[in-house]
Design a protein around this nucleic acid. Sequence first.
DNA 1: TTGTTTTGTTCTACTATTCAGAACGAAAAC
DNA 2: GTTTTCGTTCTGAATAGTAGAACAAAACAA
Lengths: 248, 248
Amino acid sequence: MIKSVDKALRLLEILSQSDRPMRLRDIAEASELTRSNAFRMLQTLRDLGYVAQVGDGSHYDLTLKIFEIGARKVASNALVSVAHPVLQRLSERVSENVMLSVREGLTSVVLDRIESRAFVRTFAYLGARAPLHAVSGGKVLLAWAPDEVIRAMAADLPRFTEATITDPDRLAQEVETIRAQGYATAIHEINDAARGVAVPIRSLHGDVVAALSISGPMEDMDAALIARFVAELQDHAARIERTWTGAA
Amino acid sequence: MIKSVDKALRLLEILSQSDRPMRLRDIAEASELTRSNAFRMLQTLRDLGYVAQVGDGSHYDLTLKIFEIGARKVASNALVSVAHPVLQRLSERVSENVMLSVREGLTSVVLDRIESRAFVRTFAYLGARAPLHAVSGGKVLLAWAPDEVIRAMAADLPRFTEATITDPDRLAQEVETIRAQGYATAIHEINDAARGVAVPIRSLHGDVVAALSISGPMEDMDAALIARFVAELQDHAARIERTWTGAA
DNA sequence: TTGTTTTGTTCTACTATTCAGAACGAAAAC
DNA sequence: GTTTTCGTTCTGAATAGTAGAACAAAACAA
C-alpha cells in the first residue's frame, strides 16, 4: 500500500463529499493529515489538474477531471450508450425516474438515469451506490448473482427503515420470489419516501448484467400500477437487449 | 509534486481510456513505469477499491468508484439537478441531443446530456471535454468569459476540420457576433459530422455559468431551423434560470 | 488601535518508504 | 520441446516523503 496514493485519493473523496470548496485546515482535519502534508498533497493534485484553488486561493475544490475520467469509463460501456435513448423513452411513458444500475460487489451503482419531470422527485443521482438488498434494482442484481454473493449479502443486512429486509431467511425467500416473478419491488426499504420496481437486463448468454428500474415516491402504487410498470420495464429491457446483443 | 500520486493518477487515466481491461504489461508500458512499479501501484489501487483484477486475475480494470466520486461532485451542483428535467423536456421537443456544459479553463465539459432517440447520433457523452472555440456550447462560454480567457484561447486555436476557427481575428469577430445575437453555432468545427447551437444560462447576477446546447448531425439545419432551435433553447434556458435562481 | 489566535505556506533534517533490477516459476508462443 | 513473455516476489540502495518547527499574514478579540 503506497501511503501517498492512499492519502491523495482520500483527499479527492473528501472534496467530492463536500458541496462547497474546503479550506486547507478542514481538509487536513477530515483526512487526518498534518497541515503541511495535506498542503503538499493538494499542491500535487492541483498541478495534476484534479484540484483547483478557488476564491482568493484559500479554498480548494475538485475540478471536473475526476468526473471526466469516471464518465469516460462508463461512456465506453456499450450497454449504457444503447440504453440511454431507451431510458428516455421509458421515462416519457411512465413519468417517473428511471435508472440503469449494475452490481459491483455487494452494492448497486446507478450508471444512467432520467429524472422525472414531475415536481416531486427522489434522489436518482448518477453514481449513487446502495446495498443490494434495499433497492429494487439491487434486488434484481442480487437475485441473479452467484450464490456466494447472496451468501455474503445475507451475512450483513444493514437496516435503513422499518421495511428493510434484515433477516437472511426473508432475503432468501425474496430472492426466490424475484426469480419466479421476474421482477423486484422495494417499498420504503432504503428510505421512507422511495418506492421502486426493477427488471433484469440480460446478455446474449442469459447472464443478468444490469437492472432497469423505475423509482419515485409513487404514492399510488398498487398491484395494478406495479403490473403496468413491470410490463413497461420488460418491454424496454427487451429493447435494450435486442439493440445491444444485435450491436455487439 | 509527489511522484507516487502522479503515477497512480496516471494509471487511472490510462485505464479509463481503455474500453477493455488491461494487462500489467501494457499498463506499465503506457505509463512508462517499470513492471514492478506498476504492479505495486495497481495493488494499492486495488486495495483502495479503485481498480479490480478481472478475468483470471491477469487483467486490471477500473471499478466504478471513480465514477461515483466524479458524479457525486456534479450531482451536488444545484444547477445540474434543476436543469435535468428541463433537458429532458427540450430533448423531447427537438429530437436531438441536448447538453449542459460549463467552462473549465479553456475547455468545456459536458455535465449532463440527453441523447436523441433518433437512430443517428453523434457523441454527446457525459464528461466530454472540448476546446472552447470548436463547439457551440464552448463558444457561448467563451463569449462571456473574462477577457484574459478569450486572449488565452486566441493564442492557441487547434484545428480539427476545415471549418475550425484558427484565426484570432475571426475568433474576436465571432465572439462579438455571439454576444450580439445571444447564441452561438458551430458547424463541422470539431468534426465533419457535428453541428450545434447553444445559448447561455445566467446566474441571478447575470454571469454566464453554463451553456445549453443542441447538437447532432442535423443535415437539414438552415436559418429557419436555427431560429427554431434558438427559440427553444432560450425558452428552456429561462426555465432553468427561473427554477435555479428561485431555489437558490 | 493593540494583542492574540489561527491559518496558509516554507524549510529542514531524518528515516521510512519506495524503487529498479534481478530473479523466479508459470504460462504462452513458437 | 524450446524460447520468450509474463506476473510476481525480493532486496539493498537511495530517494522521496514526512513531521514538526518556524514564519508571515490574516482573522479575530479586546
